[in-house]
């Protein structure tokens, strides 16, 4: 495969905000003392009058954003996922989601690939928390190109949204012709034997797993589920039904995230053998991102092994 430059989704986020600053005068950006890490500093550099650092005070940040949105602004608020979503969950619920205010929570440093900072800083439950909220849209882009388009789509969309971004530079799976459509899955690789549903940086890993499976003459469909909510249920059910087996892959707890969303859709519409690859009810820990991905089983090899076990269940029927 052609070697492409790895880029972190947070990098694309900052660049896109800065680009939008010129055209979208309603755009305002808030950060809680992490603007250099979340890359909102890129926006602050070009539109300082519309950038507000709130200090280390995430609960107030969400409320300020709610007030700005109530007066017609489009606030993007950023921090690490653990703080933006975890610390300020009830503010997001009652000041943003319940009144349906147009606030975009764009959280970076989600998942274990935060790395050396360790378990306290590695959010593995944010998709779950945001997915439970009525009115909330949840998007997990797979690469920089998708992030850029997702940011633009969410800026144009009216309503609360959560955008999950990563710290780690990751491979690009889309090219310049890619067109992001909020709420629609993307078929990246067609196959017959199993449908692999992935989101975020795990989409690239899932594509590698499909390559491994192909070497064993197993044909895997790979689908990028960038919008976890509202879930593209029809597409999920159709792909799983065609393959007769399915697996989900995410850098998140297997409770409440993509895997749960897929399991719910399949259980109600199309019961096929299914497994969830993700973080199995454990906290993260310190380590390099690569070492952590191996330690927590988020590798092409593990996905391929789990996929084969699901296919065996299908064939045993």
């Amino acid at each position: 495969m052609e070697e492409k430059k790895k880029i972190a989704t947070r990098e694309a986020y900052g660049k896109t905000l800065a680009e939008l600053a010129a055209t979208d005068k309603n755009l305002v950006v808030l950060d809680a003392d992490l603007s250099k890490s979340t890359k909102t500093a890129d926006f602050a550099a070009v539109a300082p009058e519309r950038f507000f650092n709130v200090g280390i005070a995430e609960q107030n940040m969400i409320g300020v954003a709610a007030g700005l949105a109530a007066c017609g602004k489009t606030p993007f608020v950023s921090s690490f996922a653990i703080f933006a979503v975890g610390r300020a969950f009830e503010q997001i619920r009652n000041s943003v989601a319940h009144p349906q205010l147009n606030v975009k929570i764009a959280a970076t440093h989600a998942g274990i690939t935060v790395g050396e900072d360790g378990g306290t800083h590695q959010s593995i439950e944010d998709i779950s928390l945001m997915r439970t909220l009525p009115n909330m849209t949840v998007v997990v882009p797979a690469d920089a190109i998708e992030t850029e388009q997702a940011v633009k789509a969410l800026a144009a969309y009216q309503g609360p949204a959560y955008l999950r971004l990563g710290r780690l530079a990751t491979p690009q799976i889309n090219d310049e012709n890619y067109q992001f459509k909020l709420g629609e899955t993307v078929l990246l690789r067609p196959g017959r034997d199993i449908a692999i549903f992935a989101c975020g940086m795990m989409v690239a890993v899932a594509l590698e797993a499909a390559e491994l499976l192909a070497q064993e003459s197993i044909s895997a469909t790979v689908i990028n589920v960038h919008t976890i909510k509202p879930l593209d249920i029809d597409a999920v059910v159709e792909s799983a039904g065609l393959c007769g087996a399915a697996i989900s892959v995410e850098e998140h707890s297997i409770y409440g995230g993509l895997g749960s969303a897929i399991a719910e859709a399949l259980a109600e519409n199309c019961s096929v053998p299914f497994a969830r690859v993700g973080i199995d009810d454990k906290f993260g820990q310190s380590g390099s991102p690569d070492a952590l991905l191996r330690a927590y089983g988020l590798t092409p090899t593990v996905i391929a092994t789990r996929a084969k076990a699901v296919i065996a269940r299908k064939n045993a029927k």
């Binding site: 609960q59 409320g63 300020v64 007030g67 007066c71 000041s95």
Partner: peptide
Amino acid sequence: QGLSAANGMALAGRLD
């Protein structure tokens, strides 16, 4: 939560 929202509304008023 109300004072935070008031801050946002006042900021919006200043911007506008």
